[in-house]
Simulated scan of single mutants.
Amino acid sequence: MTQAELAAVQTHLRKLFANQRIALVAPSRRNASVEMRIGEEFVGTVHRDEEDGDVSYSISIVVLAEDLAQLN
């Protein structure tokens, strides 16, 4: 993803979830996954998909079982 795409997707996610702490972090190597973070916490990855000229972005969110145990 380009820097412009990262900025646009990040802005959209911040508005959608009403959370200014959401940050998309560009990978250090080409074609690696973009990290989605909330504050210092890694929450998932963002992937760009282009098919037949249409571009979309998908988010995979990670929930660790150990994090669920902290809620009880």
Rank of each mutant, 00 (worst) to 15 (best):
Met1His: 14
Thr2Val: 01
Thr2Gly: 14
Thr2His: 05
Leu6Met: 09
Ala7Met: 13
Val9Cys: 13
Val9Arg: 01
Val9Tyr: 06
Gln10Ile: 12
Thr11Tyr: 05
His12Glu: 09
His12Gly: 07
His12Asn: 02
Lys15Asp: 14
Ala18Pro: 04
Asn19Arg: 00
Asn19Cys: 09
Gln20Leu: 09
Gln20Asn: 10
Arg21Gly: 00
Ile22Leu: 08
Ile22Tyr: 08
Ile22Met: 06
Ala23Leu: 08
Pro27Tyr: 07
Pro27Trp: 03
Pro27Ile: 06
Ser28Glu: 13
Arg29Asp: 13
Arg30Trp: 14
Arg30Cys: 06
Arg30Glu: 11
Asn31Gln: 15
Ala32Gly: 07
Ser33Met: 12
Val34Ile: 14
Met36Ile: 11
Met36Gly: 10
Arg37Trp: 04
Ile38His: 04
Ile38Val: 12
Ile38Ala: 03
Gly39Phe: 00
Glu40His: 15
Glu40Ala: 11
Phe42Met: 00
Val43Gln: 03
Gly44Ala: 00
Gly44Tyr: 00
Thr45Tyr: 06
Val46Trp: 15
His47Gly: 07
Arg48Met: 14
Asp49Leu: 15
Glu50Pro: 02
Glu51Gly: 06
Glu51Ile: 06
Asp52His: 10
Asp52Gly: 12
Gly53Ile: 01
Ser56Tyr: 01
Ser58Thr: 15
Ser60Lys: 10
Ala65Gly: 07
Ala65Lys: 14
Glu66Phe: 11
Glu66Gly: 03
Asp67Pro: 02
Leu68Tyr: 00
Leu68Ala: 01
Ala69Arg: 01
Ala69Glu: 06
Leu71Asp: 03
Asn72Gln: 13
Asn72Phe: 15
Asn72Lys: 13
Asn72Met: 06
